[in-house]
Design a protein around this nucleic acid. Structure first.
Length: 841
DNA sequence: CAGTGAGCGAGCTTCCGCTTGACTT
């Protein structure tokens, strides 16, 4: 009753008050909005704008290059509704607090908001939160400022530069190499790193050397101990190694010296996006995009702080929580509060490091992947505030008067575990042998050489990049941002510049010399080298595009290009330079480069003469075709048409040999007979296949058509027949075209090449052929046919759009629906994870 | 799906950084 009264009073006494909202706060992320609203109380309404709300026009260059490079900004279709809602709310508000992140992009978001929402200057208060805690937020509110237009200009320069580079280079690639390719400041350098590394590997010749070691035994208090020691020097030739062993025959060894040194290890800083991706890759074998997807889930459910950050900083509140946790779980001796400083180039530090929201939650509810990632984040955060580990390193030197060199045995003992109690950071390099405690040796002890070995070792080729190590490298170079590492990696794979693949190792012989009981044994052993799992390999297109770009745009492909333009962006941000002046100085020479290259450079096909076919005497070429690398046998003239064969997975124009080419050209060939009929292996449009009784069977990725046996062929045939049988619910002998099948989304009807949904009230097992035909006739496909030709043209356009959208990123306007269905969200997410998994595999 | 790759020409592709979305053949 009282409320009702108030309402009436309000209505009659303040009719002219048009402000329904006192304070409108706009942040970037909806999850952030939710938390902040709790801290601010009822006078504040918090909304999110979902990142950038305007961008350069998509279909053209979006920059007026003849008029001071004025950008043409548009509100993207999927943001229009949200922006108009914000605009309406802003009109009804007394104050609009623009609380986007405090970095270049965030400042620009605030500026775009002020423009798009038509906010009067006096109504705007610009604030920024570095951490989402009540004190930080209240402090931000009490220190508002205006939009920093210099910083906005630096962002405009960044945006326009990227557009100009991307939209001028890409069309050049369409003309010179093939359609739909792309180039850009970030992606092209990422590809270059991978191609450069591949070249290093191809040009690498391993050099062998010889490494000595020994196992000594000694007796102390009637007990026999053994100790392993490494020789202090390496040998270059087997002769030197042999000469050394000969000297060791009959030699007497004793302990010359024991040296003990204390050592310390410090914990790694808390996670940033890039280090989280690296550790999740090494420790959990997550791909970069999987890590980000799971981190997003944890963030949205309020379990961790924001996951796209380059900062290693923790809030005071987090430090206090960490201290309390460490004290109560491990004791006060384990606490050491540390302030880490960010070292990476171009870091903008708009957020905290990635940490648990509540550090007292050691585990979380959720999927297994969420639990694992959370645990990793929790441990890393806690460890970062723990004391150093204290170690003791011991070196025992063992020598003999008959040899110049000496052996060293090393041991490592942990005196105080400190942060190691919780977390150990892994590295990309091969793990060193765990060193433990040494047996009780003393200076002057006589050491018995049980065996002295010299092993041939080889210098190692540089490793190929993993997704995560590529991110690490990009971050070191200051290229890309936390929000773009994962998308960049998927872009270069989508363009087929790079593939993630596993390379089987090759066998290599090495020498093993062993001195046991005064006798030297010489043996040859085999080892597997060069095995690389889930690494990034350049494709032929990737290599050709990269070579083309380096040849013509070395300045853009330079590893330091981003760093040098970043310097200029900084000058703009400091108000020392006009942004369009900087763009002008860049664009004019760049544009000349583009048009020169367009005129002078020829179309790139990467054609390479491999040799002559011994039977036909025709030339064999390797070159880039529409669908990737291929072989061409014979010339392409009016009189004769050449034969074409696609290359197999793992083969490339760069590295294919004449031998390999000849075996590809020997297809199709007979594998053997099965059930009285020939099994023929061939190389088809979709890769290698086998044919049997007129039916085709694809080979698995792991199958090599060159070495396929008839036994394996039988397996493949049987497996496929089995699979079809398993997925068939019903067949009709009268009409073999109609089948009821089990699919990914449940049962469906297949007639010829068309598929139809089964109505919910019908049982798939009970369907008759007639019913199937009826369902087919009634199916929604008819609706499309019903459309008039005039509408068809429009429909065509929209369907094209939607199919395109579903293949890339599905965006829809069903925001409210999605929000309401948020309880069901995890399930749908799972489904999409599965989907992407199967499609990438 | 299944041994592609002609030639013509219309119409399309493309960047980097902020954010989250999502329901089927």
């Amino acid at each position: 009753m009282k409320n009702y009264f108030c309402f009436i009073l309000h209505k009659f006494y303040f009719p002219k008050n048009i402000f329904m909202i006192k304070n409108l706060v706009i942040v970037e992320s909806p999850a952030k909005a939710k938390t902040i609203e709790k801290f601010l109380g009822s006078d504040y309404t918090v909304r999110s704008c979902f990142g950038h709300i305007r961008d350069l026009s998509k279909k053209d260059l979006g920059v007026d290059i003849n008029n001071g490079f004025i950008p043409k900004y548009e509100i993207p279709e999927d943001k229009a509704k949200m922006v108009s809602e914000l605009k309406k709310m802003a009109k009804e508000s007394q104050v609009v607090w623009l609380a986007s992140d405090e970095d270049r992009e965030g400042e620009a978001i605030s500026w775009h908001l002020s423009e798009a929402l038509e906010l009067a200057k006096g109504k705007i208060k610009r604030i920024a939160f570095h951490e989402i805690t009540k004190t930080a937020i209240l402090e931000a509110i009490s220190n508002p400022r205006q939009i920093n237009i210099d910083l906005v200009d630096a962002q405009q320069a960044r945006r326009v530069l990227d557009r100009l580079v991307g939209y001028e280079l890409s069309p050049l690639l369409w003309k010179k190499i093939r359609p739909s390719l792309s180039a850009g400041r970030v992606q092209s350098v990422a590809v270059r790193l991978i191609v450069d590394r591949e070249n290093e590997i191809n040009n690498f010749t391993p050099v062998s050397f010889y490494k000595g070691s020994a196992i000594f035994s000694f007796i102390k208090d009637k007990k026999t101990y053994k100790i392993k020691a490494e020789l202090s020097r390496k040998f270059n030739t087997p002769g030197d190694a042999m000469a050394f062993l000969k000297k060791c025959i009959g030699a007497e060894f004793k302990v010359k010296d024991i040296e003990t040194k204390p050592a310390r290890k410090s914990p790694a800083p808390p996670f940033t996006t890039s280090t989280l991706q690296q550790e999740a890759s090494r420790k959990l074998s997550f791909s970069v995009s999987k890590t980000m997807m799971i981190a997003q889930q944890l963030y949205e459910s309020g379990k961790i702080t924001y996951m796209r950050t380059d900062s290693v900083n923790l809030s005071n509140m987090a430090l206090a929580m960490a201290k309390k946790e460490i004290e109560s779980f491990y004791g006060p001796g384990y606490v050491k509060i540390r302030n880490y400083t960010t070292k990476s180039k171009g870091a903008q530090e708009a957020h905290e490091a990635i940490r648990p929201t509540y550090i007292n939650s050691h585990v979380v509810e959720g999927t297994n992947d969420q639990k694992k990632l959370y645990e990793l984040i929790w441990k890393r955060t806690i460890a970062s505030q723990m004391s150093d580990a204290e170690l003791e390193k011991t070196n025992v030197t063992i020598e003999s008067p008959s040899i110049q060199d000496y052996f060293v045995a090393t041991g490592e003992v942990i005196k105080f575990d400190g942060f190691l109690k919780v977390y150990f950071e892994s590295s990309d390099e091969e793990e060193e042998e765990q060193k433990g405690l040494l047996p009780p040796v003393a200076k002057g002890d006589i050491m018995n050489p049980e065996e002295i070995n010299v092993v041939e070792r080889f210098t190692q080729q540089p490793p190929r990049y993993t997704e995560a190590s590529l991110v690490k490298k990009l971050e070191e170079l200051g290229i890309g941002r936390p929000s773009t590492y994962a998308p960049t990696i998927s872009t270069i794979q989508k363009r087929e510049y790079v593939i993630t693949s596993t390379k089987e190792g090759t066998e290599r012989k090495y020498q093993y010399l062993s001195l046991i009981k005064d006798k030297i044994l010489e043996t040859q052993k085999l080892e597997t080298v060069g095995f690389e799992k889930s690494k990034l390999f350049p494709t032929d297109v990737g290599t050709l595009v990269n070579n083309f770009l380096i040849q013509n745009f070395e300045n853009i492909l330079d590893y330091n290009f981003t760093a040098s333009v970043e310097k200029e962006f900084d000058e703009i941000a400091e108000g020392k330079k006009a942004w369009n002046q900087m763009i002008k100085e860049f664009y004019h020479p760049f544009h000349v480069q583009v048009s020169e290259t367009e005129k002078t450079s020829k179309k790139v096909s990467g054609v390479k003469l491999l040799g002559v076919h011994p039977e036909t005497q025709k030339n064999i070429y390797a070159k880039l075709g529409k669908f990737g690398g291929m072989l061409q046998l014979g010339e392409n003239t009016d009189e004769e048409k050449p034969r074409f064969v696609g290359l197999l997975k793992g083969q490339s124009i760069e590295t294919i040999t004449l031998q390999e080419a000849l075996s590809l050209l020997s297809f199709p060939k007979l594998v053997g007979k099965y059930l009285g009929e020939e099994v023929v292996a061939g190389l088809g449009r979709f890769g290698p296949y086998i044919r049997h009784k007129g039916k085709f069977y694809s080979l698995k990725k792991t199958d090599n058509p060159l070495t396929l046996t008839i036994e394996r062929a039988k397996e493949i045939i049987e497996e496929k027949i089995q699979k079809i049988e398993n997925s068939t619910i019903k067949e009709f002998s009268a009409n073999p075209d109609i089948r009821v099948l089990k699919g990914r989304f449940g049962p469906y009807i297949s007639i010829g090449k068309m598929n139809y949904k089964i109505p919910k009230d019908m049982i798939p097992e009970d369907l008759t052929a007639e019913e199937c035909l009826m369902i087919a006739e009634k199916s929604p496909k008819k609706e499309v046919a019903k459309k008039t030709p005039a509408r068809k043209a429009v429909a065509k356009k929209t369907t094209k759009k939607t199919t395109k959208k579903t293949t890339t990123k599905t965006k829809s306007a069903k925001k409210t629906v999605a929000k309401k269905a948020s309880v069901k969200k995890p399930a749908t997410k799972k489904a999409t994870i599965k989907k992407t998994k199967t499609s990438t595999k």
